[in-house]
């Protein structure tokens, strides 16, 4: 499934400005509630944790549960502190990590 990540971060911002960040991860977020055609319950497999960093420092993080939708789509905010890299990391139940990042110039 390795997640396809769409990430929207403004390419530039004024120092101190609060910017909007939008992200969608393509992931089934299998809730553990569904059954396959044979009636067997499909095992739970979701992204259980998300971390957003700015130049390596955590800005916002989250724990996710099965009530999050398939292909999670989130809107978050961050203070434009200095030029650098905004990175989002998603942790899958199976131990895999998915990352996406964007450069932003802050003046």
């Amino acid at each position: 499934m390795p997640a396809d990540i769409k990430l929207k971060v403004p390419s530039s911002a004024k120092k101190g400005e609060v910017i909007e960040i939008k992200c969608q991860v393509i992931h089934d977020m299998e809730s553990g509630q569904r059954k396959d055609a044979a009636g067997k319950t499909l095992p739970k497999r979701i992204i259980n944790k998300m971390v957003m960093t700015w130049n390596g420092e955590t800005v916002t993080s989250a724990d996710w549960y099965p009530s999050m939708s398939k292909d999670p789509f989130v809107t978050l905010y961050a203070v434009a502190s200095e030029s650098g890299t905004v990175k989002l990391t998603f942790h899958d139940d199976n131990g895999e990590k998915y990352e996406a990042s964007r450069e932003i110039s802050v003046s």
Binding site: I19, T60, A62, S67, S69, F73, T75, Y77, A78, V79
Partner: peptide
């Protein structure tokens, strides 16, 4: 550093 405590997402 979050700037504001606001989130939007989609849920089941």
């Amino acid at each position: 550093r979050s700037g504001k405590a606001e989130v939007a997402f989609r849920m089941r």
